[in-house]
Design a protein around this nucleic acid. Structure first.
Lengths: 140, 140
DNA sequence: CTGCATGCAAACCGTTTGCATCCCC
DNA sequence: GGGGATGCAAACGGTTTGCATGCAG
């Protein structure tokens, strides 16, 4: 009921933000995205990026990932899928694992909440952090 | 290898923070905990609370929940379990659902990461927010 | 006496917001 | 001409950190 309702204008900024986000398979933070977009729109403001990411997330055009770490990350792929986050460098990748809808059903039985969705986040170490050795564990 | 190694001193502050955290089944934020602890240790500093929560999380004595929302939450129960977060008020509760270890196995096969753990976070509306009606959806 | 832990306050960093201007309808 | 969108910069809120002091071993 929020999804297609209040359709917003597709301004140049919004379009380019969306394009840049769609272009990558990483899950950039707002300021990473800001840097990417700024190469094409040098005068864009950080605030505009935040505002539009928020708006597009509300309208279901993109996904706002509230994963671990300090910064929010964004994803142009909106259908439910799981993520894995590297505890070494904070990088987030998709995990190509079947979504377990049963989880929601089970949860619904186990709580007095109205269960609306779920997200699974794996944690681990990405290949390049593995290569760098087992030294530092702390990040972000 | 980090867990019991650098064992730290159990200062009064640490002990009381731990006690207060264990006392509740909610998953308090650092400043909620700060308020609770301050009733017993009026001169404690917020920094001390943060420092000690961080330390205890590193030593596996407590869990740092990096769930959605802006603030981190803490949990004295350290064995893996899932959570549900109210999109209305941000409250976080345990979900009494069997932990799906298969998830980790599947994930391990689907990625080049070294998979270390996982967390499932459900989202929904808590009883009291349901009661308050369906109006505002936005929070935190 | 020595060093880790604390209290305090300032710094930090990601995000949000107020406001004047701009641009599209 | 009017209303939403933008750029800019200041404000915000949660967390971290530097530093002088305190306290346990």
């Amino acid at each position: 009921m929020d999804t297609q309702a209040n359709m917003m204008r597709l301004t140049t900024q919004r379009q380019i933000i969306l394009e840049e986000l769609s272009k990558v398979k990483t899950h950039p933070t707002a300021s990473e995205l800001y840097d990417m977009v700024r190469k094409r729109l040098p005068r864009i403001g950080l605030g505009t990026v935040y505002r539009n990411l928020e708006l597009m997330a509300e309208n279901g055009m993109i996904l706002k990932l509230e994963v671990g770490g300090t910064q929010k990350r964004f994803d142009a792929t909106t259908d439910t899928h799981y993520h894995i986050r590297c505890s070494g460098c904070g990088r987030v990748d998709d995990i190509d694992t079947p979504v377990v809808d049963d989880l929601v059903r089970e949860a619904a039985e186990a709580t007095s909440y109205e269960v609306l969705g779920h997200h699974v986040e794996f944690s681990g170490r990405c290949p390049s952090c593995l290569k760098k050795g087992r030294k530092g564990d702390r990040v972000q």
